[in-house]
Structure formats: C-alpha cells, structure tokens
Amino acid sequence: MVRLLRPQQWLKNLLLLFPALLGGQILVKGLISQSLVPILAFCLSSSATYVINDIMDEERDKNHPKKHLRPLPSGSISRVVAGVFAFFLVTTGLLLGGWCGQKFFLFLLSYLVVSTLYSIRFKNYPVIDIFCISTGFVLRLIAGGIATGVAVSHWLFLNVFLLSVFLSTGKRLSESHALGGRAKEHRMSLAHYPKGFLEGILYMCGAAVLVTYTVYTLQKPNLVYTVPLCTFGIIQFALLANSGKSADPTEALLKNPAILLISLTWLVMVLWTLYG
C-alpha cells in the first residue's frame, strides 16, 4: 500500500512553498505550519492519481522492464483494493483542500481533473502528455501562493512552467532511449514523436529556463550567483535524459549525486541570500 502511494513523489509538492521561499517570507511566524495541510492535501491527491494511473496501465506495465515490479502488475494488490484506496485518497484530499479555502480547493480539483484525464486518455497523445504533466507543476505553484498568501510573480510563473516542460520532455526522452523499439508498446505517445523532436524541445526549453530564471534573479540581485548552479543542473539533467537513464525529476534528485548536490547548494545559497 505504501509503494502504491509513491511517497518519494511527494517531494514535488514542496513546490507549494516556493512562492514564500523565494518571496523572502518562509520564516514569517506560522507560515510553515499554515502550509502543512495544503501540502498534505496535494500529497494525498497526487497519490490518488498515481493509483489511478497504475490501474489504467496494469496490463501494459506487466511487460515493462521496471514497472512490472509495481504492486498492481506484480499482483501484490488487487484492482478493487487499489480502486477503493484511490477513492479514499481523493475524498480525503478534497476535504482537506476545502478546509484550506475555496480558491485553493479549485486549484486542487483542477489538478485532480487534469491528472485523471492524463491517466485515462491524454498520456497517449504527443505534446498533450507533456503539457498535462507540466500543468501539474504550475497548479502546485499557484496553489502554494494562495495557501501562503504570497503572490506568484510573472517571471516565477514562466520559469516554473518552462522548467516543468523541460523536465517532462526529459522524462519522455529517457523513456524513449531506454525502451528503444519497444517504446510505443509501453507508451503510445512515444510512437508519434519524430526522431530528434524531443531532443529539440529539451534544448529549447532548457535555454528558456535559464533566460527566465536569470531575469527573475535580477529582481533580487544577489540571487544571480545561483545561475551557474542552475546551468550545471540543466545540463546534467539533459545528459541523464539523453543517456537513457531514469530522468524522472524525483528520481534524478534523489539518486543522482551531482543533481542532489547542486540542488542542496542552490537551496543553501537562496536561504543565505534572502534570509542570512
């Protein structure tokens, strides 16, 4: 049951804290405790979408070199139990979201709708599948701004959007390289991407991420010294994606020493610059 939740993916929900962190307000009294319920609501809701996705992909995952070990395709848990579990997660997540206010609830509901549509249908369509994943990141960011009462600047919005497209494209590219000729059997959208297309999108979005992040840091001058770190991280992730290794954003952060070190260094520099 714990594996079905994919708790390691909950790291993505820390994006709710980014508006307050980069807005210099994360240490405001009571703000972190105020953010706990919204983050929990997204954790439960995101886990529900993972369960739904696993139910939809059960047969296909049985022939995947790695995914066949997941609880559903391996037979560790039944579809009925997984379905009941997903319903419980959705209901609990929405109840917590409603407790956080109407605006937050609407963004949480939007996240659930987009993620569910992705699992049921949209993941089979090229480009649309990438934008569905990216939308999840953007909705987390805006919901975090609502939950903490910190406005999301235009440049931060653009930067997170482009970064999410970059990461999503990298994930698709790594899957394409890792699965080779069997890629379309496991993910239909990969059959529709022409050769070199995903690489082009990856490089285009990587460059756009660096431009928008640089402009964003100019509003907080001392943050400009974090741009080299971001450049290294972007290039390292692109290398992962092109090598066929797992380029899932969470796995890359947790399992790739270089990306983990760069991310922690970036966080320390941001905290020192804005709060030190």
Score class of each variant (00 low, 15 high):
Leu72Pro: 03
Tyr213Trp: 14
Val90Leu: 15
Ala208Met: 14
Leu264Met: 11
Val114Pro: 00
Met188Trp: 05
Ala207Asp: 05
Phe107Gly: 00
Gly276Ser: 12
Leu112Met: 12
Pro7Asp: 08
Cys100Met: 12
Ala241Ser: 14
Phe161Ile: 02
Leu210Pro: 02
Leu89Cys: 09
Ile77Thr: 13
Ile77Lys: 07
Leu223Phe: 12
Pro221Met: 15
Met1Asn: 07
Leu22Asn: 04
His177Gly: 00
Thr92Pro: 02
Ser115Asp: 01
Leu31Thr: 10
Lys195Tyr: 07
Tyr118Ala: 04
Ile259Asn: 02
Gly244Met: 06
Phe88Ala: 15
Ile133Asn: 00
Pro249Met: 12
Thr226Ser: 14
Pro19Ala: 12
Ser168Lys: 06
Ala151Lys: 14
Thr214Met: 07
Ser134His: 06
Phe105Asp: 03
His68Thr: 06
Lys184Ile: 08
Ile128His: 02
Ala238Thr: 09
Leu223Ile: 10
Phe85Asn: 06
Ser46Val: 09
Leu44Phe: 13
Arg79Pro: 00
Pro73His: 08
Val2Ser: 13
Gln236Val: 04
Asn159Lys: 01
Leu261Thr: 13
Ser153Gly: 13
Ala147Ile: 05
Asn222Arg: 13
Arg121Tyr: 14
Ala20Cys: 10
His154Val: 07
Leu22Glu: 02
Thr212Ile: 06
Pro257Ala: 11
Gln34Phe: 05
Gly101Lys: 12
Thr116Ala: 11
Gln219Asp: 12
Ala178Pro: 01
Ser110Asp: 03
Phe85Asp: 03
Asp248Val: 11
Lys195Asp: 11
Pro194Asp: 08
Asp248Met: 07
Cys230Asn: 09
Thr226Trp: 08
Lys66Cys: 01
Leu106Ile: 12
Leu14Asp: 05
Glu175Trp: 09
Leu162Asn: 03
Cys43Glu: 03
Ile52Cys: 01
Ser153Ala: 08
Phe166Gln: 05
Asp54Gln: 08
Lys123Pro: 00
Cys132Trp: 00
Thr231Arg: 02
Val270Glu: 08
Ile234Glu: 01
Thr49Arg: 04
Val127Asp: 00
Asp54Glu: 06
Leu163Cys: 12
Ser47Val: 11
Ser164Lys: 08
Ala151Phe: 15
Phe88Glu: 08
Gly145Met: 09
Pro7Gly: 08
Pro257Arg: 13
Leu17Ala: 15
Val150Asp: 01
Tyr213Phe: 15
Ala82Cys: 11
Tyr225Thr: 13
Thr273Phe: 13
Leu15Trp: 03
Arg79Gln: 14
Asn13Phe: 12
Cys230Lys: 03
Leu163Asn: 04
Ala147Glu: 04
Gly30Met: 09
Thr214Asp: 06
Gly97His: 05
Met1Ser: 13
Val268Tyr: 14
Leu229Ile: 15
Leu253Thr: 08
Leu72Gly: 04
Arg187Thr: 00
Phe105Ser: 10
Ser47Tyr: 10
Ala48Cys: 12
Arg6Met: 07
Gly276Ile: 05
Val224Leu: 15
Tyr213Ser: 06
Tyr111Met: 01
Ala86Glu: 03
Ser164Pro: 03
Phe42Ala: 09
Ser263Phe: 10
Ile55Gly: 00
Phe18Met: 13
Lys255Arg: 15
Lys123Glu: 03
Leu198His: 05
Phe87Glu: 07
Val215Asp: 01
Lys12Thr: 07
Phe107Arg: 01
Leu27Lys: 11
Val2Lys: 13
Leu261Tyr: 12
Ile146Ser: 04
Leu167Phe: 09
Val81Asn: 04
Glu199Pro: 00
Met204Val: 14
Leu274Ser: 10
